[in-house]
Design a protein around this nucleic acid. Structure first.
Lengths: 233, 233, 233, 233
DNA sequence: TATGAATGAGCGTTCATTCAT
DNA sequence: CATGAATGAACGCTCATTCAT
């Protein structure tokens, strides 16, 4: 049964594609299932997309682009110039915006965070991960320079922890069944990132720039490597 | 006596399979390519594995099992009972063992961390992520009880940051071309986790349990949601 | 409007499938050969049939269903109520209809009578054989009650002979190169069935219900069994 | 685990092959299953048989050869020279011998009667059917000449009925779960063949040589053919 | 002779993409 | 623009047969 010209065709198809990609991953998604759910014909799919991969790319890239706006360099430059109290509040507001977006688009975000079900698009995910880390690094660098962050901070490693921590929160969020209290969650997240986990007793032990590994650690590591050489499968 | 079983057959096949799965992902890996690279026949593959998926599962599960040994609960219980200095050293030694393993098995680890190229095995990755987070939470809980970690720590959120931070470091590691100085890297990582990123100026602002979101944050969030309702696709 | 469905596609495929199944049997028939002979693509085959077995089933079952109409119970009930002369004529007309059908569909009929070339479909053939025998038994029972057939008839055995005799005629027919004179053949067949093969001299010997095996026969049988015990594999 | 030289190897393999062929048909039987059930190696199978088909042929042909002995021409020549009473008794004894053999070898017999599960061996079955019919024809011819059978018998058709009737009884026998009372069954079978099924009322109608089809029958047949041309699928 | 691991040709089926209407 | 029947390359898996021991 043909239907009249449908200006919503592409939207229907994108929505259905998103659904199917999310459920099955790129490789196991069938064009036929997408068009069936969209209520359009297979031919219509190829009127709007060059290929199945193209549809996937359009979905992922548009989401990625919109998400990237939340990780804007300008915001960072602005933010680090603020006095501590406002900096912290701005940070939280920016995070909230980003996580609201992630929640709203959790299906696609989850698809992306879990690799898209195809190794061919790993680059997209990597790209985003690299970007978020670089932004974190830049923010830390500026923050250190502005006295917001610890002057002895190893920016490379800290940016990994920061990006990774946020990444993990995002991964949990996209899999959540009910929307959590985001402002509260993000405030706590921020606080953990800023203050770390150690009590005074412990931070005293580590709270100085690490020059090099202690002799003891090096010996332990050596033992482990020897063990592995002998026994690993 | 029949021709004796080629003792290398399965190993060759596993190695080749690992290679091909890593390059193409499960779905796009071709059994023919695996056997060709392994230098064995197609039939031989099915002498050792029930199916392509079975080979994938064997590779991933055995790696996962060996990795799980590095995330042992006993270690945690031991570790938190030590005095701060030793606790910190033990932590680093355990981390080193784990990351040495990850480096040694970086090809499979990368495959797993990037979703295996198939949505059917997402559960494996999820499972591991859940596990690592639960272990982190348990460690934090005990550490707080023992006075090692801040008494006002939100264990749920902090465990996400911790697991996420380590996760990210692992992701960078499996993609690294040259082996980094792991002891140094892990010491820095540990230090960041323990002390956080904030300078005294900033931590002062946030260094108290968060009761609820500030009025300002709530207003910001509301604005965002309205914006999304109007414009998001 | 899409390209309209090729109305001949399924018919072409069925014809070709029938041909190939008849030549090679189900198991040795190759889908590729069927589609090649049909002048359609391999994909087209799966547009019309769920599997090779499904195509086989469709061919066999539709023929079987149409054939079953020739073995209708109603016809039997009608027929046995007629006076002898008309009964005999009706019988011949019904047989003619059935054997005309068998001739017209001799390729499929032969396929079926010879087991379809696959043990998985033996049940179809058995089913038909059972049915034809049951119909014969019913017809005989009614005929005996109506005085058309011998009152001392052993219906069970006679129905086997009847069904078997017709079965064999059908088997010869489906392998015949030229169409025989069916009305004549069937008239003769009917006559043999009705009057038997024995001359008066011989029928006198056997023309009474058999009570039990004679002593001589039993002794013979015993000898045979002993012989078998000693020598048969 | 190798076993000592086993002179029973071929017998074990034949028995297992018979079993598997009977269960699955030639095409679906797997050499691996045969050797497993036989308790021998795959290699051993090919030491005794050139191929799977060869094993099948050996099984079928040896059974067929032994069965053929039961359909011996000499017996026929002997039998028809006997006076009626003895002729009938001899017939029954010969039948009994044959059906005892069929019962004893019912698994292979069933395999053969049902087409062996492969069209490639249809010729064996056809061959046997032709042979049994020819023997029947020869017996009838001689019997007519000797006044044992009706002088107006159409030997060609009657031999089909005879061979078909016996064939059907054999088909039922090979599928029977318990051994029937063969002497009684065969006596009844013989009686039906000799005397036919018709009562005097009916045989009177047909008991004369058929010259040609009646005008009425021909018209009926014509009607049917017209109908088929118009309506057949 | 006996073994059973190894082989690889072969086939059923899927599904992204095309194109006549 | 829209349709969906048609296409055919591609791939997982099977299993009869071989042969080093």
């Amino acid at each position: 049964m043909p239907r009249p010209a449908d200006p919503n065709a592409k939207i229907d198809l994108l929505r259905a594609a998103e659904e199917v990609f999310a459920e099955r991953g790129l490789d196991n998604a069938k064009v036929g299932e997408i068009t069936e759910r969209a209520g359009h014909s297979k031919g219509s799919f190829y009127l709007h997309f060059g290929s199945k991969e193209d549809a996937f790319r359009q979905i992922v890239e548009s989401t990625l682009a919109r998400l990237a706006a939340c990780l804007d360099e300008n915001k960072i430059h602005e933010s680090v110039r603020l006095p501590p109290g406002e900096h912290v509040a701005k940070w939280r507001a920016d995070d909230l915006e980003m996580f609201e977006f992630i929640w709203a688009n959790r299906r696609v975000m989850r698809l992306m965070l879990e690799g898209g079900g195809s190794s061919d698009f790993g680059y997209l995910i990597d790209q985003f991960a690299d970007r978020s880390r670089k932004q974190a690094a830049e923010a830390l660098r500026l923050g250190v320079a502005n006295g917001l962050y610890r002057s002895d901070l190893d920016v490379d490693v800290a940016s990994m922890v920061l990006a990774g921590g946020y990444d993990r929160v995002a991964r949990e969020l996209v899999r959540a069944e009910r929307k959590p209290d985001l402002p509260k969650l993000l405030a706590t997240l921020q606080r953990v990132c800023l203050t770390g986990i150690g009590s005074a007793r412990v931070t005293a032990v580590v709270d100085r720039p690490v020059k090099k590994a202690s002799a003891r650690t090096v010996r332990t590591a050596a033992r482990i490597q020897v063990a592995r050489r002998n026994g690993a499968t």
